[in-house]
Simulated scan of single mutants.
Amino acid sequence: MTLEYRTDAPVTAAQYVDALDRSTLGERRPTDDLAVFERALAASNLLVTAWDGTLLVGFARALTDFELMCYLQDLGVDAGYQRRGIGLELQRLMRAQLGPHCKVRLSAAPAAADYYPGIGYRRHDRSWELLPGDPLG
């Protein structure tokens, strides 16, 4: 297996949704609505991908100012390619794009909660979320 890692590869919404489904992240995303992912990909300003030929097998998609904060929105690897260091390499390449003061934050998928402490992430207990439909105020 020879993988190619890219920071400049265009990714279609269909490719992304297919990769989400193969990584199991699709279980928690509205993958039946490609327009959502077209907009999400267009608004993301950092995308690192792993390719096996023309097949997208891994991705790290983030929103960042590149200097202070990077929110890792999605980190996924095709289930058939997991446990080969692909996710770690995607994060290394993502982090290489960031300035020296930039923090990385994420919300772990339930199945991945034990993965992140093992590679150096620290637990952050001061995050909050407002879900769609929740009243504000």
Rank of each mutant, 00 (worst) to 15 (best):
L3H: 08
Y5F: 15
P10C: 01
P10Y: 03
P10I: 01
V11Y: 02
V17S: 02
D18A: 15
A19Y: 01
A19I: 02
A19W: 01
L20R: 00
D21T: 14
S23I: 07
S23K: 06
S23W: 03
G26M: 01
E27T: 14
E27I: 13
R28T: 11
R28Y: 12
D32E: 12
L34Q: 12
V36P: 00
F37E: 00
E38L: 00
E38Y: 00
R39Q: 10
A40K: 04
A40L: 10
A40P: 00
A42T: 07
A43K: 13
N45V: 04
V48G: 00
T49P: 01
W51R: 11
D52S: 15
D52G: 11
D52Y: 12
L55R: 15
V57L: 04
A60T: 03
L63S: 13
L63V: 14
L63P: 01
D65A: 14
M69R: 14
C70E: 01
L72K: 03
Q73G: 11
D74A: 07
L75M: 07
G76S: 12
G76M: 02
D78P: 04
G80Y: 04
Q82N: 08
R83V: 06
G85C: 09
I86H: 06
G87E: 02
E89G: 08
L90M: 07
Q91A: 06
R92W: 05
R92V: 06
M94Y: 06
R95P: 02
A96D: 08
Q97M: 11
Q97I: 05
G99R: 12
P100R: 14
H101W: 09
R105L: 10
A108V: 10
A108E: 05
A109H: 09
P110I: 13
A111Q: 10
Y115T: 11
Y115K: 09
Y115N: 06
G118W: 10
R122G: 06
H124Y: 12
S127C: 12
S127V: 08
D134Y: 11
G137S: 12
